[in-house]
Amino acid sequence: MTELTKSDAGAGTAQTAAVPAEAEPAIKRITQWGEIRHRFMANRLAVVGLIIVGLLLFAAAFAPLLAPYDPLHQDLANTLASPGGEHLLGTDALGRDQLSRIIYGARIAVIIGLASIFLACLIGVVIGALAGYFGKAIDSVLMRVADVFFAFPLLIGAIVIIIVMGRGVAPVVISLAVFSWPTVSRLLRSSILSVREADYVLAARALGAGTTRIIVRHIIPNSIAAVMAYAAFSVGSAIVAEAALSFLGVGVSPEVAEWGNMLSAGRDFLGVKDYLWVYPSIAIVLTVLGFVFVGDGLRDALDPKLR
């Protein structure tokens, strides 16, 4: 018998090479993260997304070094200059350098996008986890609260919050977070609901594992993937929403170098000075695509069943 089963194991190495790792000659430690990174990097679009996001973060971090001009400096002698020459992307009606404003705009986009989604995930994960794990009445109450926020139109809600708090970065972050956490909590809740019925959770309970251990070792690692992918994905949509708020004049102050503000300013020159809105639009579209690609790549890479 021993011999028989040993050869089974041996045959396993030789034959079940359906798995990439099996094909490797030596047994080396393949960490979870190593494998996820490997799968992520194998996805071409995800890598493109990662490069875009990397450039965005770079621009945001080193804006003062990269930008040729002060984005707020008004060169009134040189207003509405066409792209090329001294001002690579031209100047606006107040003579501010477009390129510099776009580079500085990345800062606002990154800060608001990341902060609002981080906040949304924080609220969403706590509420989703509570609802999913405890179920019953707690679940019903929390999910009805989530429904209310979900049903509320984002723009109207944001306008109310901004009227109360005034314009600025913080009110925008808060209003975006307040209306995007319900999706996160719903995602996490449904994923916890399926994971907590899984046999491996039963097996852990049968071994005598406590609640903390079950949540930390079994439920969170298996249900958080969906949230991580969604979070990456929604940073992009948060940036769009933020730009929309500014475009409508309820976002950050109008003088700030911000893509929505630039679009808003460019609106007056539609068909005349199109470069005023085309370049900020490109910045927004690229940014959103970058985050979408990264989110898609993460979702696939985090799924242990997809190989």
């Binding site: 021993t2 089963t5 040993k6 041996g10 079940t16 790792a21 047994i27 393949i30 979870q32 071994l207």
Partner: peptide
């Protein structure tokens, strides 16, 4: 004891066939 190579210790379940996985479950 369950007839698997002891060097498989760092692998993940999806790298095994059904029968091998059941052996892992028995070992646990």
């Amino acid at each position: 004891v369950v007839g698997l190579n002891p060097e498989y210790i760092n692998r993940y379940p999806h790298q095994f066939s059904g029968g091998q996985r059941q052996r892992i479950g028995i070992a646990r």
